[in-house]
Computed example of a mutant assay.
Amino acid sequence: MTLETAAANASYGSSASGSSFYAAMRILPQEQREAMFQIYGFCRQVDDIADSDGPRPERLAALRRWREDIDALYQGHPPPRLRDYAPSVQRFGLQREDFLAIVDGMEMDVPQDIRAPDLATLDLYCDRVASAVGRLSVRVFGLPREDGILLAHHLGRALQLTNILRDIDEDAHLGRLYLPFEGLLHAGITSNDPLKVVADPALPKVCAPLVERARAHFEQADEIMGRNPRRVVRAPRIMSKYYRAILELLVARGFATPRNPVRLNKMARIAIVLRYAFI
């Protein structure tokens, strides 16, 4: 690992400290931990491009350069910012298409802000920005191929749907609305203006089916993790329990206005790590 990459990974670790990701990754052996921080670092960088307020053509060009760099990595000529990924790619069999899927997902937000996608598009978005990350991660964790793909599918969607429900107001102020078009229509909401939608009294009716969808994915993920050795599912189980707790806090708070931010307190986070990492 070069000094540049080591510094970058330290930065990503620092920025993730206190998060479910950081707690879950810290319990891994060194090689796995380094690979996971590389995956996290990649996701952070492309996400920062998608979320920046720079001109859209410039953001698209920056994501295109990431595609080119990923291709170069897998052709055996990694650019400087990906040079230290090569050993992890080889050691854990990380797949090029999963890295590119993440870029595809970030790109969905760039030409224009996502507003009320249909359910199929929302599911595709969740697959690209979350389950593709999971497909890389389960290879590092060491899950069997079939169960690993299934876990990435269900846990990735559970986490992303929870993020969407948690960040409704924050996303609306960025001009984005990830709540599905079908759900809005069912609730009698005809606007796709994010700020109007999040202020609508019918919003809880839109959120309820997403809560149930997320819960179903969490249950499927739990079933998969339950049939695999505890040592290989410690990290994803911690992330699952963190996010499931956040989802239930959101439900307890409700989705009507006013909506105060929801966070898992420090003692609850520590309890989850102790229970699923060490006990």
Rank of each mutant, 00 (worst) to 15 (best):
A16H: 05
G76E: 04
A72L: 12
N9Y: 07
S15L: 12
R64H: 08
R56L: 11
A8G: 07
L73P: 02
G76D: 03
E31A: 15
R65Y: 03
Q30E: 15
G13M: 04
L28D: 06
A6N: 12
E68F: 00
R83C: 13
R56S: 13
R64G: 07
D69Q: 09
M25A: 15
A24E: 09
Y40T: 07
Q30P: 13
S15Y: 04
R26A: 15
R26F: 12
G41E: 06
G54E: 10
P80S: 13
I49A: 03
A61Q: 06
L28W: 00
G41R: 06
E34V: 14
E58A: 09
V46Y: 01
G76R: 01
Q38L: 12
D47H: 04
P87Q: 07
A50Y: 01
F21N: 13
S15E: 09
G18Q: 05
A72Q: 06
D84K: 01
D51M: 05
I49N: 01
S52G: 08
E58V: 00
A24D: 10
R56C: 10
N9H: 09
Q75E: 15
T5V: 11
A23H: 15
S17R: 15
S11T: 02
P78L: 14
P78F: 09
L63M: 05
P80M: 12
G13T: 03
L73V: 11
Y85P: 01
H77N: 14
Q90G: 09
P80T: 06
M25C: 15
R67E: 07
R83T: 14
S14G: 12
A35W: 01
A16M: 02
Q45K: 09
Y40K: 12
D48N: 10
A23C: 14
G18H: 04
Y85Q: 07
R33N: 10
Y40R: 14
P55A: 13
T5I: 12
P80Q: 10
F37L: 15
G54N: 10
Y40M: 11
R81Y: 06
G41D: 04
D71T: 10
R44G: 00
R44Y: 03
I49K: 00
E34F: 07
R44S: 02
A16S: 11
R59P: 04
H77A: 15
R56M: 11
T5Y: 08
